[in-house]
Structures are given as C-alpha cells and as structure tokens.
Design a protein around this nucleic acid. Structure first.
Lengths: 111, 111
DNA sequence: CAGCATCCTTAAGGATACTG
DNA sequence: CAGTATCCTTAAGGATGCTG
C-alpha cells in the first residue's frame, strides 16, 4: 500500500488505492451499512486486527474514499462513511464482484 | 499473492486473483495486443523483472486467466493470451479503470 | 528466447500491551 | 470506545547470474 503514483494508467491508479487486504471489504461494508463506528466495522470484518483496520481507514481517508466524523462525547464516538469518490469506486467494483462470484462457483464445483 | 481462499465474498475472490503488482496490467496488455510473447510482454511493462513476470504468468495460468502456448522451435517461442475467464475479468475491470482515470485527473489538478 | 535459481531488501500484516 | 505504540513474522518484490 501507499505508493500513490506515479501511475501508468487508470487501472494502476485504482488498484493502488484498493490494495490492502481489507480495503475492498471496508468499501463494501460501508456501502451496505452507511455510517459505521470503528467497533462495528471491526465486528463486520472477522479477522481484521485493530491496527490494520485503523491503518486502512486512515489511508482511505487520505485517498478521499472515506469520511471520518468525530462526535465529541464520552465514551468517544467516531463514524466512518463513504465519500462520493468511495461510493463510485465501490460501484465500479460491482462487476468485479460479480466476476468473483462466478469464480467462487467454479471453485466450488467438483474438480 | 496466492492465498486462493477461503473467500468471504466475490470481491474478495476476484481481488485475490489480481493482487500482484503487474497482474491487472498484464490483463490489459494481453487484451489489447492479443497473443504476446514473453519478451514482448516484458517490453510492454517497463520496470517488471523477469522473475515477477514469469511468476505472475504462472499464477495467472493456474487461475485460468491466461493461456500459455509453446511452439516447438529454435529459438523457443512461447505465447500468452487471455482465456475467456481472463477476458471477462478484464472486462469487469473496465469500470475500475475509468474510475482510476478520474482519480488521475484529480491528482493532476493543482492542489 | 524464455525462462529458473538464489540471495537479499522492503513492505504488509499480525500479536500484544497500553492510553485518552 | 477508539484508537497508538511496539515488536515480530511473513510475504512480496527486486537484482543478479545461469541454462535449455
């Protein structure tokens, strides 16, 4: 993660921004549930560590895919949601997801 | 690269198969030029090492994205081309590429 | 030409403990 | 609750040299 260019083309520039074990899943999660808190996101992504989740979210915020809102409360409340750019990227990934489902079906078939 | 499951969803399964610094670019290259030889591919991807190109191609062949054809000649001639599955994946990545081009334009804008 | 083998560096990711 | 900080392991990628 985190080269941010120089990019040789659009795919390159897009893949860079989603490379990271959980990023496409975070996109998906936020798209489906709207604004989510850190802990909710964590529970929605079984296996993710706090470190990676925080790191990915910070990078995605920097890449303008995710918006972070802090509510000044005790206990603290922080909500993450998609920006327009994040939403459109998730949209662009739909066809890829469909392709992946076909792959899953093929993998499930008896060899 | 190379976990090949278990996958939590389609995006996960698809991203796994394109994760690798040059894979989406190889897909693109093969889609545009049709069958290509190892050396042509190498020249078409400035910066790629022989090792990585060979490794990616082997994995993509295993994942049924790429077909490898050996012609029994001297000097040796080996051609790579997309399978149906590879072609459809590349197709699915088009929207992602378009998104990436927008990102490139945004990045190019004066900060 | 089309590669494989080897060694090495860097980066990604995970585990654990701690804090405002 | 929402993180940081630190340490450690693994995996990705690169450089170089050699081979059928």
């Amino acid at each position: 993660m985190g080269r941010r260019g120089p990019y040789v083309c659009g795919i390159d520039a897009a893949m860079d921004v989603v490379s990271g074990k959980w990023k496409s899943l975070i996109l998906w999660e936020l798209h489906h549930h709207g604004a989510r808190r850190f802990g909710e996101l964590r529970r929605g992504l079984p296996g993710v560590s706090e470190k990676m989740l925080a790191q990915h979210l910070r990078e995605m915020e920097e890449d303008d895919l995710v918006r972070r809102e802090v509510f000044d409360q005790v206990p603290p409340r922080v909500e993450y949601s998609l920006t327009d750019s994040g939403r459109s990227l998730n949209e662009a990934l739909r066809a890829v997801g469909v392709w992946g489902q076909q792959r899953l079906r093929r993998l499930a078939e008896p060899a």
